[in-house]
Design a binder for these strands. Structure first.
Lengths: 190, 190
DNA sequence: ACCTGAACACCGTTCAAGT
DNA sequence: ACCTGAACACCGTTCAAGT
C-alpha cells in the first residue's frame, strides 16, 4: 500500500480557536480536568498537539483561560420584556448561572485560580445591571452583586463535591436548598 | 575526599506525615499549587521524592486530600463561654474560616475538586452546631449552614481572584464587603 | 499560513535494592 | 522500617522542517 498522508490533512475542516475550545470542554466535561492534556486534545481534533499552539500561542495557560471565559463570563442577560423589579430577574439569572457552572463542573477549580479575572468582572457587571435596572441604588447594587455571585459560586462548589447527606444524615435536595438559600440572600438585599 | 553519604541520613529528623504536609503547604502558599511536585517536595524535606510514598501510599492524590483536610476542615469551635444567640458566634466563625481560606488561597481550587468530601462535611456539621446551640431549629440550621458556607467559600474565591475594582471602577474594600454580605445573609436566617 | 516530527526538560509512580 | 536509584510512561513546549 502506498501511503497517502496528505488526503486526511487536505479534506478535514481546518482548526479554529472555537473548535479547540469546544473539544477541550468536551474532554473536561466527560473525563475531568486532569485528563485534559495538549496531546489528548490534539487526538480529539485529529491533529498533532503542536498544531494547537498555532491558534493559542500561550499554550495550555491560554486554553484554560479560554475555558473559564466560555463558562463563567455571563452574557448581559438582555431580558427583552422589562420585568417589574429586580427580584424575579435576579432569581432567573442565578438559576441560569448555577446551571452553567454545574454543567461544566470540571471548570470550577479554574474559576478559583488566579487566571482570567476579566471573565468574572464581566459577570459582576451584568449582575449589577440586573439590580440597577430593578431600581437598586449604585452602592447597594455593587455590594449585592458580590454577595449573590459569591453565594452562587460557593453553593455550586458545595453541590459539585456532593456530600450526599446533611449533618443529620438526610439526603440533600440541592435544588430546593439552592433556591432557599438564594431567597435568604435576596431577602437581605431589600 | 571520602564520601560519607550516611551522615546526613542518620542525623536528620525522620520523615512524618505532619512534616510532609507542612512542607507541602509552605510550597503552595509561597509558590503556588502548580509548583507543588513530588520531586520539589522531596527537595524541601531533604529526601528523595520516592520516600514520601512510604508515608502517603496513595501518592499525590493523598497529599492533596490531606491539604484540603488541613485547611478546610473546621474545628468544632469550642467557644468556651456560651455566648447568647447564634449571630455573634456565627460572625466569628465565618471571619475565622474566611481568614484560613485566604491564608492558603492556593488550596482553594482543590476544595472545589471532587476530592475529600469528608472535610467539608465536618465543616458543615460544626456550622450547624453553632446554629443549633444558638437556638435555631434543626431544619433551618441545616439550610442556613449550606447557605453561609457557600457564601464564605464563594466570596473567598472572588477575593482571591481579586478583581481590583467593582463595576463602577472603584477599588473594592473586600473586608467590609465580606461583612456586609454576611450580615445580609444572616439577616435572612432569622 | 498551517501543520508535523523529533527533541528537551520535566512530571508521577513502580520496583528492586540498599541500610 | 525507612529510604534510594534507576527506569517507565507520560507531560508541556521549542524549534526546525515540511506543504
Amino acid at each position: 500500500m502506498v501511503r497517502q498522508p496528505s488526503i486526511n490533512a487536505q479534506h478535514r475542516t481546518p482548526l479554529s480557536t472555537e473548535r479547540i475550545i469546544e473539544a477541550a470542554l468536551r474532554i473536561v466535561d466527560g473525563q475531568g480536568l486532569a485528563r485534559l492534556t495538549m496531546r489528548r486534545l490534539g487526538d480529539a481534533l485529529e491533529v498533532e498537539a503542536m498544531a494547537i499552539y498555532h491558534h493559542l500561542p500561550r499554550g495550555k495557560e491560554q486554553l484554560l483561560d479560554a475555558l473559564v471565559t466560555h463558562v463563567a463570563s455571563s452574557p448581559a442577560q438582555a431580558d427583552g420584556a422589562a420585568s417589574a423589579g429586580w427580584r424575579e430577574p435576579l432569581r432567573r439569572w442565578a438559576a441560569g448561572y448555577r446551571e452553567r457552572l454545574l454543567a461544566h463542573a470540571g471548570v470550577l477549580p479554574l474559576l478559583v485560580t488566579r487566571r482570567n479575572s476579566a471573565a468574572l468582572t464581566t459577570t459582576v457587571r451584568s449582575l449589577q445591571e440586573v439590580l440597577r435596572r430593578g431600581g437598586v441604588g449604585e452602592e447597594a447594587a455593587a455590594a449585592a452583586a458580590h454577595t449573590v455571585l459569591g453565594y452562587v459560586i460557593g453553593h455550586a462548589a458545595l453541590e459539585v463535591r456532593g456530600t450526599p447527606e446533611d449533618g443529620a444524615d438526610r439526603p440533600v435536595d440541592w435544588d430546593s436548598r439552592f433556591t432557599a438559600g438564594l431567597d435568604l440572600v435576596l431577602a437581605g438585599v431589600g
